[in-house]
Every structure is written in structure tokens, then in C-alpha cells.
């Protein structure tokens, strides 16, 4: 067993029988030494594993990292972790209580996963949006490679961000307990907010979940914000 553990340290593998405490417990590795073609994903996951609250570090790309792939892999990671929030919402966010996807009472969001946009209940909106995002981000047409991403495909990331953000905002305004518990563990909404600000993927006025000042720093003025959504 000891021998097996030393082998495990050399190779980043989770062998069957690995205890939960040892799962993905590898020594950190600098990005330059990650050899696989999926190194960006490995690197992002490593940074999150080290400290999920250290958002700045997580969002700092390695030198010379091409930005399109960086944004794409981060968004994959967000959608993946949002599954966790969806699982929690499934227990509490019922069609009876949340018959529409809302956050503040200002807007009702229509679900874009259907041929014609549909007023899905919040839980369906959540699931459909995550499923649709999984389809788009894995689409052979738009993202055939995870190493090289076309500029036109990078432009699609913004619309995915806007939609999945509504899951955060619904959870925050309607299921505060779930949101707080999830956020305390993952810092996911804070990371997401910082991410979309940093890469100008969403307009400021759409970021309606209150955030610590540190997260909102560096945000542009309103004029800049509105222009920024037209950029991608």
C-alpha cells in the first residue's frame, strides 16, 4: 500500500479503491510541466483545488496562455460546478413555487433551449440551460478542438455566461440558504462575477447578485459596460 501511494505521487491517477481523502490529492505542478493537451483544464482545476477562495490566482492565466482557450476552459469548469448548485436546487426549487425563472421581479427569463423560447419553471430553466451549455461547449461545430478555438466561437461564450448567471441570481433571490451554503464552499458566484468582468463577457447592470467590493473592483463605468457587451 505504501508503495502504491508512492507510485500514485508520481502518476496523477485516481486508482480504484482510492479513499475520498486521497482523491485528486497530488502535489502541485507548474503549468509548464503539464504535458497533456488538456493542460489548461488540469491547471485550472489544480488552482481551484489549492484554494477555491483565491479567485485572483485561479483567474490568472499562465504566461503566454492564449485567451480564447483560457476563457473556454474556465466556462466549462463553471458549468460543471454549477451542476452542484442544480442538484441542490432540485430538492427545493419546485415548479409549484418557482413556476418562472426570475431573480428580482423585474424580468422573467425565457428558456432558450427550445425551438421557440419557453417560459420554463426555474428548475427546468436551470437544467435546460446547463444541458444546452454542455451541448454548445462540446459542439463539434463550434468547439471541435480544446486547443485551438476559432474567434467566432469564442464570441459565443458571452451568451452562455449571461444565461448561466441567471441560475446564480435565481438561487440568490429565491433560495438564499442553498446559495449561501454553495457559495461558502465553492466561491463560484464570486469567481464567475470576477471572470465575466475581467473578460468583459457580461454587462455590469446584469450582475445583480451583491458582491464584496473586491470582486467588483476594476469594473467599468456604465457606458463602458454597455459597449463592452457589443464587443464580442
Amino acid at each position: 500500500m505504501k508503495m502504491a501511494e508512492s507510485v500514485k505521487k508520481l502518476l496523477k491517477r485516481n486508482k480504484p479503491g482510492t479513499k475520498a481523502n486521497f482523491f485528486r490529492k497530488w502535489p502541485d505542478e507548474p503549468f509548464e510541466e503539464m504535458e497533456s493537451t488538456l493542460a489548461v483544464q488540469e491547471f485550472i482545476q489544480q488552482q481551484i483545488r489549492i484554494d477555491p477562495s483565491n479567485i485572483d490566482i485561479i483567474l490568472t492565466p499562465p504566461d503566454s496562455q492564449e485567451e480564447g482557450v483560457w476563457k473556454y476552459e474556465h466556462l466549462r469548469q463553471f458549468c460543471m460546478e454549477l451542476n452542484g448548485l442544480a442538484v441542490e436546487l432540485q430538492t427545493e426549487c419546485l415548479p409549484d413555487t418557482c413556476s418562472q425563472m426570475t431573480s428580482t421581479e423585474q424580468w422573467i427569463f425565457l428558456c432558450a433551449a427550445h425551438k421557440t423560447p419557453k417560459e420554463c419553471p426555474a428548475i427546468d430553466y436551470t437544467r435546460h440551460t446547463l444541458d444546452g451549455a454542455a451541448c454548445l461547449l462540446n459542439s463539434n461545430k463550434y468547439f471541435p478542438s480544446r486547443v485551438n478555438i476559432k474567434e467566432s466561437s469564442v464570441a459565443k461564450l458571452g451568451s452562455v455566461c449571461r444565461r448561466v448567471y441567471r441560475i446564480f441570481s435565481h438561487a440568490y433571490y429565491h433560495h438564499q440558504n442553498i446559495y449561501n451554503k454553495f457559495e461558502n464552499e465553492t466561491y463560484l458566484c464570486q469567481r464567475f462575477t470576477k471572470f465575466v468582468i475581467k473578460y468583459s463577457l457580461m454587462a455590469k447592470e446584469n450582475l445583480i447578485v451583491p458582491m464584496p467590493d473586491a470582486i467588483m473592483q476594476g469594473i467599468r463605468t456604465e457606458e463602458d459596460g454597455t459597449t463592452s457587451i457589443k464587443e464580442p
Binding site: W107, L110, A112, G132, K156
Partner: peptide, 28 residues
């Protein structure tokens, strides 16, 4: 699909014509 990106959030109060195509085009 990108054309309506700007409209939906900012203009419509209810029923923003969300970028339907974007998500569904892959299926059609």
C-alpha cells in the same frame, strides 16, 4: 444568433427573445 445578444437583456422586460438559435441550432 449573435444579433439579438444585446437586445434581450436590456430591452425586454418579460420574454426577451433569448438567443434561441444559439442553443438550438446545434440540434437542428
Amino acid at each position: 444568433d449573435d444579433d439579438d445578444d444585446d437586445e434581450d437583456d436590456d430591452d425586454d422586460e418579460m420574454g426577451m427573445a433569448d438567443d434561441v438559435i444559439d442553443m438550438t441550432s446545434i440540434c437542428k
